Simulated assay, not measured.
Amino acid sequence: MPKRRQQKKSRTRERFEALTASLAQKIATEGAGIVARAAAQVLVNLRGSFSPTNVVMIAAQYPAATRVQGFRAWEKEGYPVRRGERAIWIFAPRFAKKVDGERGDGEEDVRELKGFITVPVFDIAQTTAPPEVYPTPDMRISGAVDLGSAVRAVNNTIAPVKLLPTSHPRLKGSYDPKEHRIVLYAAPDAVRLHTLLHEAAHALLHRSLEGAETAQVEREAELAAYLVGHALKLDGIDEASAYYLSRYTKDPAELFEALKRSATAAAKILEALEGSTRLRKAA
C-alpha cells in the first residue's frame, strides 16, 4: 500500500477511535439516559434520512437536530452554515471500483464497499435559514399506546407473541431464539408493554446467541426498549429501564456501541408499531 494512502487510512482510523471515545465520555459525564432520550427524539425526527448508527452519532453531538445535511447541500438551498458552527460528524461508506476482471462494452462499473469515513454535517439551526422554515418535530407516534395493538403489530411483523394468563416468580417475559417466539406473563398492561419492547428487540438482534454474553444482549435489548419508550412518550420508561442499564452497563464505551445496535432494532420496532391503527398520530 502506498505510504500516502496508508497515512490517510491511519488518520481515518484515529478519527474513528477519537470520535467514539469522545461520545463514550459524553455518556459517562452526562449519563446514559440523557443521550438515549436525545437519540429517541432524533430517531423520530430524522427517521429514514440516516442509518440508526448515525442517528446515535447525531444525537450524542447535537440532541436538538431536526434536519441535517452537508455544508454544500445547505449552500445550494441558499442557507449557508454560519461561521464558527461546529460540525456534526457521522459515518459514510467509502466505495471504489471493483477491478476483478475486465469490463465489457456497455457494462457499468462495479463498485464495492471499502470501508467507512467520517464526514461533517450540520443541522438547519446552524445555518442562516430563518426559524419559520425549520421543520416541526414530527412525533409520528405519540400518546398512550394500546397494548393489544402493540402485541398485534409485533406478532405480525417481528415475532409471534403469546400472552400467558399466569405470572412468573422471576420473569415478566422471555424470547426463545430457537422457536423465535415471545412470551409475556400476566402483569399490568404498562409492564407487559415495556416487556414486549424488550423482547421484540431480542427477537430482532439476538436470534443467534452463539458467543454473545448475557450482559451484552440484555444491554442492547433494554436500550432498544428505552429508545422506543421515549419516542412513544411512555410513562415510567426511565424507572423501568434503570435496573437493566445499571446492572448490565459498566463501561461507557460498551454503552455507546450498544446504542448503535439498539437504535437499529428501535427503528424497526417503531416502524412496526406505526402500522397499528390504534396508535395516535401527531397532527
Rank of each mutant, 00 (worst) to 15 (best):
residue 3 K to W: 13
residue 4 R to L: 15
residue 10 S to G: 07
residue 13 R to H: 08
residue 17 E to V: 10
residue 20 T to L: 12
residue 27 I to F: 10
residue 31 G to W: 05
residue 32 A to F: 14
residue 34 I to P: 01
residue 34 I to K: 15
residue 37 R to M: 06
residue 42 V to G: 08
residue 45 N to A: 10
residue 48 G to V: 07
residue 48 G to F: 06
residue 53 T to Q: 13
residue 56 V to E: 02
residue 58 I to E: 06
residue 60 A to T: 05
residue 74 W to M: 00
residue 78 G to Y: 03
residue 81 V to P: 09
residue 87 A to W: 05
residue 95 F to H: 11
residue 97 K to T: 12
residue 101 G to T: 03
residue 106 G to W: 03
residue 109 D to G: 00
residue 111 R to D: 03
residue 115 G to V: 06
residue 116 F to L: 14
residue 125 A to P: 08
residue 125 A to K: 15
residue 125 A to I: 00
residue 126 Q to E: 05
residue 128 T to R: 13
residue 128 T to G: 04
residue 141 I to V: 11
residue 151 V to W: 01
residue 152 R to C: 04
residue 158 I to Q: 04
residue 164 L to I: 07
residue 166 T to Y: 15
residue 166 T to E: 15
residue 169 P to L: 11
residue 170 R to D: 12
residue 172 K to R: 13
residue 177 P to T: 11
residue 180 H to M: 05
residue 182 I to S: 10
residue 184 L to V: 11
residue 187 A to E: 09
residue 188 P to F: 03
residue 188 P to M: 05
residue 191 V to R: 10
residue 195 T to R: 05
residue 204 L to C: 06
residue 210 E to V: 08
residue 212 A to M: 11
residue 212 A to I: 06
residue 212 A to R: 15
residue 215 A to T: 08
residue 215 A to L: 11
residue 218 E to Y: 13
residue 220 E to P: 03
residue 221 A to N: 09
residue 224 A to T: 01
residue 224 A to N: 04
residue 226 Y to V: 07
residue 227 L to E: 09
residue 229 G to S: 08
residue 236 G to Q: 08
residue 241 S to I: 07
residue 242 A to H: 06
residue 242 A to D: 08
residue 242 A to C: 03
residue 246 S to T: 13
residue 252 P to F: 04
residue 256 F to M: 10
residue 261 R to W: 08
residue 262 S to N: 04
residue 265 A to E: 01
residue 267 A to Q: 12
residue 274 E to M: 08
residue 276 S to T: 02
residue 278 R to S: 14
